[in-house]
Design a protein around this nucleic acid. Structure first.
Lengths: 214, 214
DNA sequence: TCTGAACTTGAAGCTTGATTCATGTTTCAA
DNA sequence: TTGAAACATGAATCAAGCTTCAAGTTCAGA
């Protein structure tokens, strides 16, 4: 959770007019990290509305008042957390896909990695999705970044002749949706099928479509 | 909203041990309908946590206490509403797809209808998605019913030679996810592109996949 | 050592809003 | 017509929990 230091996490740099809650010392940095780690675990377990700030400070081992030294509100720490988790997810997935020789292979590897990522921390996934209702702007930002990267990859692959040309923005959103729902169904609800098996079936759909061969 | 009468809406038949809140007279039936209609509009506008029971009763034009004549709690009316909206959505889409000559055409018609359905009532859509966090069992039930119907349709189409055979459950979930995200992106966020154009692009992806022709 | 900024503390204030309940009013079957 | 069940009312109750604040403690630099 240390990566979430003020220098790289935009959630932690104050807007003009608000008071500066950025930690100034090593001690403060450590307390902030404890709060974020506690928020990750508490929000993940019980969801935003079921967890109180006092749950978070207790899990972090600090006093209630300390919370407001670092965050303006419960919403603020949630937004900061979602930004952090979103960046973590994107980094994980792009690393998993990096060695893929072409886009079709990348789709399969990416989905398999996503299912396993979700299985490793289903509550993390839940937190990001919950942002849709608790912090819509943050959630929208997360998926917009994701979709833009996806679109860019599709366009490059089309230019390289690896895939058919098409509307890459629309295709990116459709593919992301497919990935997210597959992750929900086979990553969170039911973990009995192997991730690679699922990924292979979806990969076949994505590569060849539904239409029967001629 | 009248369709939500106790005879067909399982949300309104009481579990054993709980008190019976089913309306017994025409007046009661009418009040219940007013409450559900108000809930649809209030939850849709502000979301579950931002709307109070008193918001709902005021919108319905009844006293606060009346609420508890018909619903055990705020959660209970939300669950009832989601079940109602889910059934409405499924009915709308299956009607829209009914005249399709084959499955590939049905996919395109279904997506176009879905985008237009979402555009007609984006808040309705939001309410169903919010159920993921407010009433997870209800939400899961909604998508499970949806996915099972989808899987069944795919299996029938594969048997009829309209589409390639494959893992129909996995394909159903992937396609639902694609539809949902496309609906979010082009139905809720941005309504500038025509629904039929979007549907055609996604339809091409679903029919032919990404792989370049031989 | 001294000093002020950074940090910590947790009890208290305060708002919000879900739920209850005692008291009427309406309906409808007999 | 009548009485019991159904329904309606809204003030009062009550708990939860966000946020503030006044009083300390720690620490780095001078």
């Amino acid at each position: 959770m240390n990566q979430a230091s003020s220098s790289e996490n935009p959630a932690l740099v104050p807007a003009t007019g608000e008071q500066d809650r950025t930690p100034k010392t090593a001690r403060g940095e450590k307390t902030l990290a404890k709060l974020l780690a506690a928020a990750k675990s508490e929000f993940g377990d019980r969801g935003f509305h079921q967890t109180s700030i006092s749950d978070i400070t207790q899990a972090a081992g600090v006093a209630l008042g300390t919370f407001y030294v670092y965050f303006e509100s419960k919403d603020a720490i949630f937004r900061a957390l979602v930004r952090y988790l979103g960046a973590e997810t994107r980094a994980h997935l792009s690393a998993a896909v990096e060695p893929a020789p072409d886009r079709l292979r990348a789709e399969i590897m990416g989905l398999e990695a996503f299912i396993e990522f979700v299985r490793a921390g289903p509550t993390l996934y839940r937190t990001i999705e919950e942002a849709q209702f608790v912090a819509p702007e943050t959630w929208r930002g997360h998926y917009s970044v994701f979709a833009e990267a996806y679109r860019h990859n599709l366009a490059a692959a089309a230019a390289a002749g690896q895939i058919r040309p098409g509307d890459d923005e629309v295709r990116a959103w459709a593919l992301i949706g497919a990935n997210v729902f597959i992750g929900m169904r086979y990553g969170v609800w039911d973990q009995s099928r192997s991730a690679s098996d699922i990924a292979a079936h979806v990969g076949d759909l994505i590569a060849n479509g539904l239409k029967p061969g001629p």
